[in-house]
Design a binder for these strands. Structure first.
Lengths: 255, 255
DNA sequence: CTTCAATCGGGTACGTTGTACCCAGTAATA
DNA sequence: TATTACTGGGTACAACGTACCCGATTGAAG
């Protein structure tokens, strides 16, 4: 229960794993390893997609058909494994467009949409609590990729950083609100409709009490049923609206 | 480990608890209850502030000086308790200003700042994964309070909803990035400085590899050390910049 | 006052989690 | 062939949420 955190136990080992600096060409005694870190990470992602963020290490072992403790020969612990999984999922595909060749706004919208897509496919990502930024090779490449959207502008470096961080945080924040419920409904929890049906009478009574006048004023309309994607797009759109004048002012002249 | 979710087990009981519709005036046989739900919620918040989101039910019992299972006489389970804690923390103080009497922009900035403050004081809130919106009395009152910022405007209800949701998601998203690390460092985890010191060599080597040209181009500056609050403010400011023309266009004439 | 019944707090115990530890088997080197 | 490092598998433990039981307590009914 209750969301223990994801940080890094032994940072040295964790970073070695992230940057794949291990495996001394394997001319050591002993049997050859049956697994690889990458296979474990891939299997763990599969399991997490199925079981949600509360996936168990035993499930990962099972997915790989090995003993429960075998994984620990490759990965120091669950926290480090999650770090690897997170970094893996921020890998950008080979068919990614060149953001530098695109208008800055459509480029950033594209980044937001594709990030949203990743969250849709792996909602457990939103339930993971990273104590420290992971910054593995794939994350770094993703960041580098996004920076391409600012290539033809002279926005100060610091502000570029702020803009990218802000955009990602907007997408992540919106996704958390709306996508978490899609992941791994374990057991006797109820559906969306059932929840609102149960909650309805209480809300009606509360609104009828007059203690929430402003909510009451527009509660009977369908102003409520907005999808998560709508919410994300609205926030991103307003954010980009606000960013626009600064981008235009810093547009680099083609000289 | 790994973030099991917060939803609602039995919705009926959970909602009764949220709306405090229990306790039939106590003219029943049996000993008088030693505790109240509110005392439990308060104690649980104290414990969570100290131990982080991975606080244990036994710690709450201990804080109250009762047996481990006694809490379960009042609250069906941990998930429901967390729901109550979350709702409790979105209560607005009695000294809250009247947003309707304030300029819309400063009003929304105030909302963002005070939300940030709540997260600063209770970082474990950011680690909690709510599967369904809680919408208890305090949350609803908080929402009603925020709606006051739009009183003197004619923005469509749906867009008001989108704007408020967006603002909250921006604050929450930013807070998650930067505030989670402050909560409950349990055991042999390392400090911020140690982490960056350990990560530094890897990043330098990665950047030197030339695979991240854009990151390399502005990595040696101090464009990186932005505080979480800076990041939040930048995102909120751009969002409000983008919202501004729509707010101005919908300003209600004093007639 | 006695009896009944409902409800209290406390204690014990179970299943599940991450993972520390031990052990027998394997393969490269001397 | 003997040595030695390393493998995967199994057992075991502490901590967790919580189901369950039990004696004690207190109001209502006779």
């Amino acid at each position: 229960m209750a969301t223990p955190q994801t940080g890094a136990g032994d940072p040295k080992r964790s970073l070695e794993l992230l940057w794949r600096e291990y495996e001394p060409q394997h001319s050591k005694p002993g049997p050859k390893p049956k697994l690889t870190v990458d296979r474990i990470v891939e299997a763990a992602i599969t399991v997490a997609d199925r079981e949600g963020s509360c996936f168990g290490m035993r499930s990962v072992s099972n997915e790989l058909g090995v003993g429960a403790m075998t994984i620990y020969r490759y990965v120091p612990g669950k926290k480090e494994l999650i770090d690897l999984m997170v970094d893996r999922l921020s890998r950008i595909g080979p068919d990614a467009p060149d953001l530098a060749a695109t208008d800055w706004r459509t480029a950033l919208e594209l980044v937001a949409e594709s990030t949203w897509q990743v969250y849709s496919e792996h909602p457990w990502l939103l339930e993971v609590n990273q104590k420290r930024p992971v910054l593995g090779p794939d994350s770094l490449e993703g960041y580098d990729f996004v920076l391409g959207a600012f290539d033809s502008h002279d926005l100060p470096d610091r502000e570029v950083n702020l803009a990218v961080t802000g955009l990602m945080n907007i997408v992540t924040g919106s996704a958390r609100q709306y996508l978490i419920r899609d992941s791994a409904e374990d057991g006797p929890e109820l559906s969306e409709a059932e929840w609102w049906e149960a909650q309805g009478p209480y809300l009606e009574r509360a609104i009828a009490s007059g203690r929430y006048p402003r909510v009451a004023k527009f509660s009977d309309e369908d102003s409520w049923d907005l999808t998560g994607h709508d919410a994300m797009r609205y926030a991103v759109d307003r954010f980009l609206d606000g960013l626009a004048p600064r981008m235009e002012a810093s547009r680099r002249t083609p000289s």
